[in-house]
Amino acid sequence: MSLNDILDSLFPAGHAVNVENKVITGEATTAQGTVAVLGTTDAAAIDHAMALALSAFILDTVEQHPGRALVFLVDTSGQALSRSQELLCLNGSLAHLAQCVDLARRQGHASLSLVTANAVSGGFLSFGLMADRAYALADAQVRVMDLRAMSRVTKIAHERLVELAAGSPIFAPGAESYVRMGAIEAIWPEPSAGLLEAALAAGGLAAPASDQRQNSGLLRGGRQLAAGITKTVQNAACGA
C-alpha cells in the first residue's frame, strides 16, 4: 500500500505531508484536532540525517504547537549499516531522537505510532517504541532479525527456530508476538480513520503516566516473567 493511500485512509478530512529522504513530516486533520504526522517510509534504514530531521520536527512541534498529538508512521528496516555513520556515533543520534519523543510526552503531547510495513531493531527503538502506544497494520513485519539470520548468529538450526517460534512470542518475528509481549496495543486490519480516532481519543483520555508494557505483556500471556521481576527488584529490602 502506498504512503498516499495510507494517509488518505487515516486522514480523510485532510493531510499536508512532505516526504524527503524517506522522512515524513507534516500535519493532518482529525476529529481530535490537528495532529503532527511524522515518521519514515520505504523501509528506511535510519541514518543521522533522518534521525535529526525527525528530532528537529518534534522540537518544532513542541515549540510551535503545544500539546499537539504526534502520530508516527513507522516503516524502517533498522539502522543504516555503514562505517561513516558509526564514525559519527549513530547510536547518539538515535538516542537524541528518542529523547525528543520523551520530552514531547513530558510536555503533554500524546503520541501513537503505527507500523505500516516494517519495524526492525534500532529504527523501531528510536521512535516507534518511544510513543505512548504502538499499533501495526495486519501485514506489517516487526522483528529484531529474521529467523535465518538468527540461525546463523546463534548457531541454532533454522528448523529448530521455526518449530519453537510457532509457540513462542519471545522470539517469533511478527506483529502478533509484539501484541502478546505488550509492546503493540493492537493490529489494525487496514489503515482506518475510525481506528485512529479511537486510538487518539483513548490516548487523550488516559495518557500513560508510566510505561505499562510489562503489565500488558503479562496480561496477554506473552511475557510471563518481566513484570514480576521488575516489581521484586523495586520492592526488595536492601542495604542500610
Partner: peptide, 14 residues
C-alpha cells in the same frame, strides 16, 4: 539477546 529477541528489544525500550 537474540535467543529472546522480542523480549530483549522491548526490555531495551523499557
Amino acid at each position: 539477546r537474540l535467543h529472546e529477541a522480542n523480549a530483549g528489544l522491548i526490555a531495551i525500550s523499557e
